[in-house]
């Protein structure tokens, strides 16, 4: 009953959830930066810090995106293995450097290119490992 093949549709969904996930990081980082003056040293200041963060509009934008990602992510998980979905979603690590090369004309070190190559190869291998079998459990 479960076809665990990674189709183009699932890849697109993963891509969408990755972009939204990046947006979440951006929103939350913005929300956290707004509280830069506070330092977290003990439990009381941690609670105070979180309270301050929860009043930030960036946090709420982030939470809204979280809900969207939850829907997309659940749909993906209904189709493929967790151990396939999570690694494939790692291409957001490629997204940021590639975007900074294309739009910001940043230089990328050899080490970073090597890393990008590793991630790409890994993603392809994991996708292929899911294609190998079609499970028949009813």
């Amino acid at each position: 009953m479960f076809k665990k093949k990674v189709t183009l549709k699932i890849l697109l969904l993963l891509f969408a959830s990755d972009i939204l996930e990046t947006a979440i990081h951006f929103f939350f980082k913005k929300g956290a930066l707004a509280q830069d003056g506070l330092s977290v040293v003990d439990l009381t200041s941690a609670v105070f810090f979180l309270k301050a963060i929860f009043s930030s509009p960036f946090l709420w934008a982030g939470l809204f995106t979280v809900a969207a990602v939850f829907i997309i992510w659940s749909t993906i998980l209904s189709k493929i293995d967790l151990s396939v979905a999570v690694p494939i979603a790692s291409f957001s690590y490629i997204l940021v450097p590639v975007v900074s090369v294309i739009f910001l004309h940043e230089q990328i070190s050899v080490l970073r290119w090597t890393g990008i190559l590793f991630i790409l190869t890994g993603v392809v291998l994991v996708s292929l490992s899911s294609k190998e079998r079609v499970e028949q459990n009813k």
Partner: peptide, 27 residues
């Protein structure tokens, strides 16, 4: 825990991704 079946290919791919992320992030 979920008992998903892992082929060598999947282990290899996951390992490459982990190494890749470390390379990309450490600058």
């Amino acid at each position: 825990i979920l008992k998903e079946k892992f082929s060598h290919l999947r282990w290899l791919g996951t390992g490459l991704i982990v190494m890749g992320i470390v390379f990309v992030s450490l600058n």
